[in-house]
Computed example of a mutant assay.
Amino acid sequence: MKATPVELRNLGRSSTKISALGLGCWQFSKGRGMVGSFWAKMDQEDINKIVKLSLEGGINWFDTAEVYGKGESEKALAEALNSIGEITDDALIATKWWPLFRKASSITKSIGERTNALDGRQIDLYQIHQPFSFSSVRNEMKEMAKLLKNGKIKQAGVSNYNASKMRLAHETLEEEGYFLASNQVKYSLLDRRIEKNGTLDVAKELGITIIAYSPLEQGILSGKFHKNPDLIKNIKGPRKYMKFFKPEGLAKTQPLIDLLEEKATKYNVSQTQIALNWLIHFHGETVVAIPGASKVHHVEENIGTLQFTLSKDDLDEIDKVSQQIAVFE
């Protein structure tokens, strides 16, 4: 299997090369658990197809987590990679340790569970899923350093860390001879808080990659719900109750949706691709994104995003309209 050539970037200060878009695998949770039930259950056959098409289109990394279906997403991803039947050594895996009600020692003690769920595949990026646990940032990073030293993981990252916690994590790893590769946070044209709270600035200063999750605000930026609000009634899970899906949310975001549609026509692409392209280019190479995919056409959208670059004028114009609508604090 030969992947379509796409531009690759360094993951943080590491030599690991990643595509500007990875595939978010939360949807692979099989509907299990409270977190997994956010999405409708997917058939493994569909998951296999989505993973294969992503790889063929040049997307070379997949982001999953322990808490996604209590390991079901990891298992589904591994099964999909195995089903391809060809060499998938270039497929990189990012997963996450769930810290709530646990101590830092669990990071090293439970790594075998993560590897087993992934059917023995290498963990290229291991992340602390969120900052709330029974242990400090320093103790957690010391445990991550042990995994790095023992070759259990290739790179260490965090998720949902603010600027100060991210800096502390990086400094602690540096004391151990390593560095923080990434911070996975919510970021989109409608949620730009990391630009004002210092998170993005610290990431740029320290060479840490920002991994943007929910880059399309659960699909709102696609514009399909603005054109046909009745689609919201058929959404499975709690997504339909989020503020952007309410009538006032649709009305507020309409000017941005209109601009995305205008640019989509100009570049002969989709609104989704415009929104994602802005995200991965507006801040140079600092920001990458992990849109999900529950259908083949979602994968095609993701792949197409990597085939063009918005002009500076268009990036700036989208930025200007976004600033009038987005959440900054």
Rank of each mutant, 00 (worst) to 15 (best):
residue 215 P to K: 07
residue 212 A to C: 08
residue 253 T to C: 06
residue 276 L to V: 05
residue 199 T to R: 05
residue 139 N to Q: 11
residue 300 E to L: 15
residue 16 T to W: 06
residue 238 P to S: 11
residue 281 H to F: 11
residue 15 S to T: 15
residue 54 S to M: 02
residue 242 M to G: 12
residue 81 L to S: 00
residue 286 T to F: 05
residue 41 K to F: 07
residue 69 G to V: 09
residue 89 D to I: 05
residue 327 V to Y: 14
residue 249 G to R: 06
residue 187 Y to H: 13
residue 249 G to D: 12
residue 107 I to V: 15
residue 142 K to F: 08
residue 79 E to V: 01
residue 22 G to R: 01
residue 29 S to G: 03
residue 305 T to Q: 00
residue 92 L to H: 09
residue 145 A to L: 07
residue 295 K to E: 06
residue 148 L to N: 06
residue 212 A to S: 08
residue 191 D to G: 08
residue 221 L to H: 02
residue 155 Q to Y: 14
residue 128 I to L: 14
residue 182 S to M: 05
residue 189 L to K: 03
residue 66 E to G: 05
residue 239 R to T: 15
residue 251 A to L: 13
residue 293 A to Y: 02
residue 297 H to D: 11
residue 206 L to A: 13
residue 34 M to N: 09
residue 53 L to P: 03
residue 38 F to S: 04
residue 315 L to W: 05
residue 127 Q to L: 15
residue 127 Q to S: 08
residue 74 E to I: 10
residue 6 V to A: 03
residue 125 L to H: 12
residue 239 R to Y: 12
residue 54 S to T: 03
residue 244 F to N: 09
residue 297 H to A: 04
residue 236 K to L: 06
residue 54 S to C: 13
residue 52 K to C: 09
residue 181 A to H: 05
residue 142 K to N: 15
residue 276 L to R: 01
residue 286 T to N: 10
residue 36 G to R: 07
residue 152 K to S: 12
residue 141 M to V: 11
residue 286 T to L: 04
residue 129 H to M: 09
residue 228 N to S: 11
residue 82 N to D: 07
residue 322 S to C: 07
residue 73 S to T: 12
residue 154 K to G: 03
residue 318 I to L: 12
residue 58 G to S: 04
residue 13 R to T: 14
residue 212 A to D: 03
residue 50 I to L: 11
residue 159 S to P: 10
residue 245 F to Q: 09
